[in-house]
Nucleic acid binder design. Structure first.
Lengths: 246, 246
DNA sequence: CGAATAGTGTCTCTTAGACAGTATTGC
DNA sequence: GCAATACTGTCTAAGAGACACTATTCG
């Protein structure tokens, strides 16, 4: 807080207000998180979640999307707020953070371009991210985000977004693996597939006809190869409650 | 923002960070909300939710309890964060608010003493509160709080807290009425009572032996009188997984 | 064949929603 | 008796958990 350049004055002390984004991506059946390497102090050089300070003309949802775009180039994601982090000392500059998660659709731009505040931006598997020393309390935020997604996998909106994360060709076991990493426990195969049907998620995808054996070298795993699926272009059979005017 | 008295200086503009508490109470089968009449501008004289600004040495949970105690004298409640409110212009001073709800146990002090910032503090029925013009966006916060509680009535912790709100003698229909006001819809009597059993909430209460007819003047309603219940002192039959050492 | 994973089906238990039937009061 | 609310029970359907059986590949 350099007194010389300070241009904003208040009667009472004010914390910084920031947002942090935990952006998840599915890569080869593994959940990955978008992290940046901090380009400035504090915690310069450490891995951190993308995010930044609130501006006067925006709300928190807008802020988290703007910062994500600025720091990593990622757009077109839906942010879900899941918790605030305000423990004194979590950031030596006194910053309160609203934490969000989002699930990156596979077709979204993976541009991931380092921006102003970020030296580098890149994807890290959950395992990697957990092994690294993260800036601030971002390790706690990450864990809370994983739990938050896991708790909302029964929400059709979130479950649908998980399907949207999948690559052009994926197996149902791949989807199950993603769910398991968010839930933190193994799921029964039969029950999981039944759930996909009940939630009408099977209507959103279709078989490609390919299997794990028929791709590339014609070589498969040493077990029954799984069917590949893809997202349907459009749920063509949208119910039309009204007919065109005469 | 009087430039003269300003003692805190920052390089970037910072919003005020506040908390707001929606404290619910059950009174005669009706949900009531604790509100204060604002003693200062902006919105002086209007009804508002208790709450206030975050201090440097506390987190948001602490802040909301401190402000509640200062403004209304209420202590010993558990705060549940349910949403942030940050729309630009919601407060002309640029304030971001973390909103909480809590359910007042009946045995808690209803002292409700006006404090520094509040001219008066008092309880208002949901109907009253909804009819009044509230300060800032507190009408929206109130509605969001009601919905948030309604969505969490299946959570044993919240359902238990609702029982804790009830007066010394209450009927099961009273409890149902409280649930209905949070849920915003009528509930089936049979199904509701079954739920109380399934959630083991019936273990927490017991019949007083009195009915609506046997109280006071011996006069009752013109229909079958309901049984009165009260909270059990202690769930005396706590499962003892281990026996005392010899 | 055995190991490993994919895919499907089944049994049971819990819970939710709808609703019927009885009970007890005042008027 | 009638109106109104309290209390209890039943029928059915949906969903979850556990688990078994078959299928298909590689080595």
């Amino acid at each position: 807080m350099s007194e010389i350049r300070a241009r904003f004055h208040y009667d009472h002390p004010r914390p910084g207000v920031a947002t942090d984004m935990v952006l998840f991506k599915a890569r080869q059946g593994e959940v990955h998180v978008l992290m940046i390497e901090r380009g400035e102090n504090p915690h310069k050089g450490k891995l951190a979640l993308p995010g930044g300070f609130l501006r006067p003309d925006e709300d928190l949802d807008t802020c988290v999307l703007r910062e994500l775009a600025e720091e990593t180039g990622v757009t077109h994601v839906t942010p879900y707020h899941f918790a605030n982090f305000s423990t004194p000392g979590r950031d030596e500059r006194w910053v309160v953070s609203a934490a969000y998660f989002a699930l990156l659709p596979h077709d979204a731009e993976p541009v991931v371009q380092p921006g102003s505040d970020a030296a580098t931006a890149g994807w890290y598997s959950l395992e990697e991210a957990r092994a690294r020393k993260l800036a601030f309390d971002h390790a706690r935020i990450l864990e809370a985000a994983v739990t938050a997604v896991g708790a909302r996998l029964d929400d059709p909106v979130i479950a649908k977004a998980v399907l949207g994360m999948m690559p052009p060709a994926f197996t149902l076991s791949d989807v199950q693996r993603i769910h398991e990493q968010f839930r933190g426990e193994a799921l029964d195969r039969g029950n999981f597939r039944r759930k996909l049907k009940i939630m009408q998620l099977m209507d959103l995808i279709e078989r490609t006809g390919e299997t794990q054996r028929t791709d590339e070298t014609g070589k498969g795993p040493r077990h029954r190869p799984a069917e590949y699926y893809r997202l349907r272009k459009k749920p063509a059979s949208l119910p039309r409650p009204q007919r065109a005017r005469p």
